[in-house]
Design a protein around this nucleic acid. Sequence first.
RNA 1: GCCCGUUUGGUGUAGAGGUUAUCAUGCAGGAUUGUCAUUCCUGCGACCCGGGUUCAAUUCCCGGAACGGGCGCCA
Length: 493
Amino acid sequence: MKGRLVRKNRSGRWLDERRGSATSMDETWHPTTYRTHTLGDIQRKGAELVGQEVTVAGFLHASRGKGAICFADLRDGTGMTQVFAKADTLGEDQLSLLQGLTRESTLTVTGTVAQKRPPKTKEGEAPPPPAYEVLASSISVVAEAEAPLPLGVTDTVGVGLDTRLDNRFLDLRRAHVNAMFRLRAKVLQYGREHLITEGFIETHTPKIVATATEGGTDLFPMTYFDTPAFLNQSPQLFKQLCMSGGLERVFEIGPAFRAEKHDTYRHLNEFISFDIESSWSTDDDVMGVLERMLHHIWSSVANDAACQGHIQAINDWRASQDEEPIEVIVPELPFPRVEYDDAIRTIKERGGSIEWGDDIDAENSDLLAQGLPQFYFIPRWPMDLKPFYIHHVEGEDGSTGRQLSRGFDLNFGRDEMTSGGQREHRIDVLCDNLRDMDLDPEEFEFYVAGFRHGVPPHAGWGLGVERILMVLTGAKNVRETVLFPRDRRRVCP
RNA sequence: GCCCGUUUGGUGUAGAGGUUAUCAUGCAGGAUUGUCAUUCCUGCGACCCGGGUUCAAUUCCCGGAACGGGCGCCA
């Protein structure tokens, strides 16, 4: 954070003039029809720009001064810059236009870059590092904002989540909210980057499907021309067909739809699933892929200057809400593995009410997570808790003598991040599994057929992108991590 | 699907069976200012809907709607 350009706000903290910086130093910036420089540029390259004429554009963040001069803070996705206006350089008409402009209006400003006069500081307090401003010679109002705003972008008052989501476009203009989605893009970028280095290729499978549920959840029905169809709950069956097709290692980042009427901090009816499938692999092999990928994401975020800016924006906000700052702690490899058998024993020892063969609910997960501050795997679940496509090895029995599976979960604290496993590639076992779970192999013919003419053993997993973002950003509600979340009640906007 | 809770200006809140309904933010107007989410003055703006109890309901009761939270299930 050396050399940050900061200033103080009313609560006495220094604000980062470059906060929300979108462009890393190594990215290439091309001027557009509307601007020669971003506002972040003015601060970063201010020293060399002094005296030069620039055109900048952005939202009117705040304006001060109704007399002979006016200070207008302009904000774009890369930072903030103050515009200084006085009648003798801007002209009476344009000055009063600027002074009367509503907050959040968009405008372009042409003027000369200058170093700001330093703010008054209390005795003994160090002045902030130099910052730069634009001395306006002309302005052009692009789109005036109606007042009052349904949600004050700079207001100190709190705003309910529902109000925020109803007016998401304004909510997104707030630095810490904007930062969330820039971080989201980075997480996907680094995840993708890692899988490509391990030889995975990106695929897309259909979201409109004819088959009924593969179990465990309800689907959204729809009409596909004259045929009944559904929105897919997971790319599972299709990525397995890719294995049969010899694509070897695939990944997919795409939407999944579940029609469950849940109403919790961690569920959505449309979410982004980050899936992989890998041939000639076991559950243990793909757990390795997962932990290496998460490690890469975390260490990359920790070493990315833009990400640090986003984290800082979130922490500035958290400080104003009296919340502890978040920290990017790179998880150690390998992640702990707590087999289901051991998990049940540990939960019982800690006073949890659970029996072998039960799913591990949220309360019991809290007990299990004690002493596990980071990600941890739970491998080797009972076969009858896992879907029909999960593989098992005869003779691998739990402490009660019941068949174990090659399915695993990855948790963080009480929350499940990932579900995965080695898949059943033996067609006879697969069909038995379907029948055991009261599913009709006939209905899954398109899938079962993929196992009839040779198939490699394979394994994979599906990771909830939103839940990973919650861990990274400290968001307490999954809706915070989605631009336009779809939950039980919300389909608009 | 089950359980619990909330609903007061644009936004976030305080509060009481009879109030001029609190505060902040915002908005409008004015004064001031090389300011720093400026400061000061003046003004504007609200009790979710329907029914009941009562002399009187925004306040109590019932129902509805919207929203929030927890559980189950999952990512």
